[in-house]
Amino acid sequence: MTGLEGALALFLLANLAVALVRAARGPTAADRMLAALLFGSTGVGVLLLLAHVGTPPHMPIVDAALVLALLAAITGVAFALRAWSAEGEDDGGRS
């Protein structure tokens, strides 16, 4: 079973690498932030898979996933409530 989990972790990481392109060039600030949020939710999945890779599974990594899940909301809400303002020029360019 560990082979499958390692392969899936690699697949999700490749997903993240593709999303990195979006974060790097996605035109508006919100697009970049969405890519960062995708990193958060996919990162939790990768951490869970990594915890189960290896012959003795390394369970404490699950706790790292838990912390990541707990704090994922803070960044996104901080972006929405505090950072994202005066985006008029960007959105005119998009739509």
């Binding site: 949020l37 994922a72 972006f79 409530l81 959105d91």
Partner: peptide, 23 residues
């Protein structure tokens, strides 16, 4: 936890987008 985090975040961003006039 991730469910709660992402729906709250999505709603906050959608609401902010509308306040900023992103159509």
């Amino acid at each position: 936890l991730v469910l709660a985090a992402s729906t709250v975040t999505a709603q906050a961003i959608a609401r902010r987008a509308q306040e900023l006039g992103v159509s």
